[in-house]
Design a protein around this nucleic acid. Structure first.
Ligand code: FES
Ligand code: FES
Lengths: 155, 155
DNA sequence: TTATTTTAGGACATTTTTATCTTAAATAAG
DNA sequence: CTTATTTAAGATAAAAATGTCCTAAAATAA
């Protein structure tokens, strides 16, 4: 029927963001065991496309979320000491920017308390809870769940 | 810097959904005063593109969310009696489908409690609150706010 | 009936996002 | 220094979402 609802849209994050989070979480599990990983290893375990993931990891490297080394024995790693400091919000911000936290639910040029759109009051509550959730969830938290087998990255 | 974060993405709903909600809310305010409105009037007051909005209203008409009549004195209207029954979730479902409620936060093929992705437990809480919010907010609620001047559709 | 108005809907165009390909740069080992 | 390996990054391609255009169909009134 309707050309809309192509069973694809409506995702909370962009694909780039999804690939980025999965890659970082996998790299973190390996760094916890002292293993530096190559991009091929990353995408094999995250199910994301290799070249695209490379681009995303490049951005995350610039944002100092992950560390990279070129050449033989190179790859990606995250210092275990930093894992509890790095939050999911840092990844989302580096890739999708702050629109997740600041954007208007109906797409108005800006979200305002004094001149709100019809969904503002209820929308802001959800958005703030999402923000708090992302800011209080660390890479370490997610990596531990994956390493223990409680969670998965591919289905 | 990063080619990502083009200051655009990260929106909770698709543009089609945003246009649809704004159009419906405006039509509702007019129907409350017994006025049937033409598409030109709708987009003048919602700030959305006309042809695209026409497509979206076509889908919403099929889903029985709004009523349309062709010909002179035609246009769109919503029976005031139904406004409290029609929820924002109905509009979102008609346009974006159920991925908002069912989709995995990291894009896995399906969201599962028994085999969850790393963000599942925290993500599901937010998603359920969003769902509840959309299911408990009626078109009538939004229309009243707009009619009284407490909220706006264009900025 | 005929002319006019307005939505319906298919075809087409544009923009954005996602993804790939190719070459350059960096690093380490021999 | 040379070679092999790996990330960096620009150019390009494909796919999806957004948006426009044009004709058909429906309804109304004269
Ligand atoms: S103004 Fe629309 S969500 Fe705040
Ligand atoms: S499995 Fe990913 S959100 Fe439920």
């Amino acid at each position: 029927m309707s050309k809309f609802a192509p069973e694809k849209d409506g995702a909370m994050f962009s694909k780039a963001c999804e690939h980025g989070i999965k890659a970082i979480v996998y790299i973190a599990t390996q760094s916890l065991e002292g293993r530096r990983v190559k991009i091929g290893d990353v995408v094999e375990n995250s199910g994301s496309p290799e070249a695209f993931t490379g681009k995303i990891l490049g951005a995350l490297t610039k944002h100092n979320i992950v560390n990279s080394l070129t050449g033989p024995y190179g790859g990606f790693e995250i210092a275990p000491k930093r894992m509890k400091e790095i939050k999911v919000s840092d990844i989302v911000f580096a890739i999708d920017g702050d629109s997740v936290y600041k954007g208007c639910g109906l797409g108005l040029s800006e979200c305002s308390n004094t001149e709100p759109c019809p969904v503002h009051s209820k929308f802001v509550k959800i958005r703030n809870e999402l923000k708090k959730m992302l800011e209080t969830t660390s890479i370490y938290d997610l990596a531990v769940g994956l390493k223990s087998g409680k969670t998965i990255l591919i289905r």
